[in-house]
Computed example of a mutant assay.
Amino acid sequence: MIRTLLTTTALAALLATGAYAQTATTPAPTQDPVVQDTAPAAPVARAEGSLVTNIIGESVYNGTGDDAENIGNVDDVVFDENGHAKSVVIGVGGFLGVGAKNVAFDYNKLQWAERNGDRWLIAQTTKDELTAQPDFDRSAFDPAPAANDTTATAPAAPS
């Protein structure tokens, strides 16, 4: 009984799908496709600068040659009080981000290069030079703690 019900339901669904596919029509082109003018694709405008989301996580290399070495990954970007990028925080060493040392590197010394159709972030330094720098101290950039409410009333004295 159940087998018959399932079979007829599947058959009805199959027939309904076929009937639906046959009723769909494609609109006829207004002109012969050979005669239609194809508009050239608009060129993509390249902006000056970069989005932070395109920089964070980016691998940093020490050059563009075949012997270029991956010296770390960008973990963060530091901005000055005017909103200009001041430095990038590069995670150096470690394995898959574990045990990496974060160091600050001057943003103006970074360069973008294109290699094999991919954009590379280049820092003219070595992994050893970055590792020798002091750890980046994030505490100066932490948000200020919320002020305590000093207007709170003291509990009433027991009577």
Rank of each mutant, 00 (worst) to 15 (best):
Q31R: 08
D32E: 08
D32R: 03
P33R: 00
P33W: 01
V34H: 01
V34S: 09
V35A: 10
V35I: 09
T38L: 09
T38I: 10
A39L: 14
A39C: 01
P40V: 10
A41V: 12
A41P: 03
A42E: 09
P43G: 03
V44T: 13
V44S: 04
V44A: 13
A45Y: 01
A45N: 05
R46T: 10
A47Q: 10
E48I: 11
S50E: 09
S50W: 05
L51G: 11
L51F: 07
V52D: 07
T53I: 11
T53L: 09
G57M: 01
G57I: 01
E58Y: 02
V60M: 02
Y61L: 10
G63N: 06
T64Q: 11
D66Q: 08
D66G: 12
D66M: 10
D67L: 10
A68F: 03
A68Y: 05
A68L: 05
A68Q: 08
E69F: 03
E69P: 08
N70W: 02
N70A: 13
N70F: 00
I71P: 06
I71C: 06
I71D: 01
I71L: 03
N73S: 11
V74I: 15
V74R: 08
D75H: 07
D75Q: 11
D75T: 12
D75E: 12
V77R: 05
V77K: 07
V78M: 09
E81M: 12
N82G: 13
G83V: 13
H84N: 15
H84I: 15
